[in-house]
């Protein structure tokens, strides 16, 4: 199970980086979203995947799910959600003001 999820997160990383290297702004935004999904799945896998186990350690329970990765992911999801929404607004405003969504034309000049 861990191997499958790891391959999945690898595919997510690869598609994310492919999208990040595009010229169109919206593709880049989608790339960052995919990147964060890949990273979150990766954290989840690092805490070992189990089903039907309690997430806390009490007396008599030897098998348990690690709760820490889930706490970490939750924090990270909230943060990347916030950043993505900010990024969307910023990308929209940039396109409006500069009248292009092509990164090639958003390069800027020297000595500006």
């Amino acid at each position: 199970m861990e191997i499958i999820i790891l391959i999945l997160s690898g595919i997510l990383f690869a598609t994310a980086i492919y999208n990040l290297l595009q010229k169109q702004l919206l593709r880049i935004v989608i790339g960052t979203a995919l990147l964060s999904h890949g990273a979150h799945l990766f954290i989840l896998t690092m805490g070992k995947l189990k089903t039907g186990q309690p997430p806390i350690l009490t007396d008599g329970v030897s098998e348990y799910t690690d709760p820490l990765p889930q706490a970490l992911i939750l924090t990270s999801i909230v943060i990347s959600f916030g950043v993505t929404s900010l990024l969307l607004v910023l990308a929209y405003r940039t396109t409006q003001e500069n009248k292009t969504d092509n990164m090639e034309q958003l390069r800027g000049k020297a000595n500006e």
Partner: peptide, 29 residues
């Protein structure tokens, strides 16, 4: 105009490195 353009790049590079940071933390964990 210029500010929007440059801050977009600033945000993207920082977002990318933050996600790399999360991945590195996952490795450590």
């Amino acid at each position: 105009k210029v500010q929007l353009r440059e801050s977009l790049k600033y945000l993207l590079i920082n977002l990318f490195s933050s996600m790399l940071f999360v991945t590195a933390i996952a490795f450590v964990y």
